[in-house]
Design a protein around this nucleic acid. Structure first.
Lengths: 140, 140
DNA sequence: CTCGATAGTTAAGAATGTCAAGCACTCTCG
DNA sequence: CGAGAGTGCTTGACATTCTTAACTATCGAG
């Protein structure tokens, strides 16, 4: 059906736009099932280990004042907690609670099963895909 | 540096999360340079040709009422216009104005030059990348 | 110890997301 | 034709997020 001609960088960029939109559409749907917004879900997923609010702001590409509100709501639900760092008392480390860890596990599992195409890639394709992604979007 | 072992689907999903975040970080930055929000930029980019607000809501994965507000602001800036479809007078087609077309062209160009990794892919890599993206995120 | 920088909070206003209700229009069916 | 169901868009109320600026507390360098 589709011609096998090499896509121009512009066409590739369109495909990327669609992929990124598709990813967040799935992510938002999975988060919404648990009454979480996209941002709240993103933040929980980032918290593999405790980290300062400042770091979260950088990773989420948003203002620090923004993180305050998001953590407020997650803390009110008992999914994360704030702990002042003893070494530098300005810093507050955000940590997942037990319930928060559970939620993240569920979100990850459902997201995975919702991205059906991922399971279908064989080992070599996964290597290739990861390399291409890493090249186009190098870790900041 | 990184071992060349095949990534697990879970690791690949993390890479995808990072790529999607990186894409929208660039996109939002480019849009912001023109005083546009991420959503406004997304909508403009979708308008290669006129389309009903309902369709835009589906593509942006948001509520129809949301589209009303976004189009209101873009229209107030003279970037798009609403035109009632003669065949079905319930439908309003959103169209880019001349200035809107210019803006989209600029956004696309800057986004492209901001995703530096894209230009570096040779033809074969582009084919591979596009196929992988299309497989994991099939067109809805 | 004072000064400049950093982490986090607060507050005000714009933009977006969600939900329910409403209006205009189309379509179907009797 | 005409009533009712369904669709497209708008409006209003409210929660969340984004943006900006000011403010407090703390750290670190001189």
């Amino acid at each position: 059906m589709t011609p096998t001609a090499p896509p121009t960088p512009a066409q590739l960029m369109d495909q990327l736009a669609q992929a990124a939109a598709g990813y967040y559409r799935s992510f938002a749907a999975v988060a919404a099932e648990r009454g979480l917004t996209l941002m709240q879900g993103k933040m929980l997923s980032l918290l593999r280990r405790p980290m300062p609010m400042r770091t979260l702001a950088d990773l989420l590409a948003c203002d620090a004042s923004n993180v305050t509100g998001i953590v407020d709501r997650l803390e009110a639900r008992g999914l994360v907690s704030r702990e002042t760092a003893p070494a530098d008392r300005r810093i507050k480390n955000v940590t997942l609670t037990e319930e928060g860890e559970d939620t993240v596990r569920q979100i990850r599992a459902e997201l995975m099963s919702s991205l059906t195409g991922l399971e279908g890639l064989d080992e070599e394709e996964r290597i290739t895909f990861q390399r291409l992604l890493a090249r186009v979007f190098p870790a900041a």
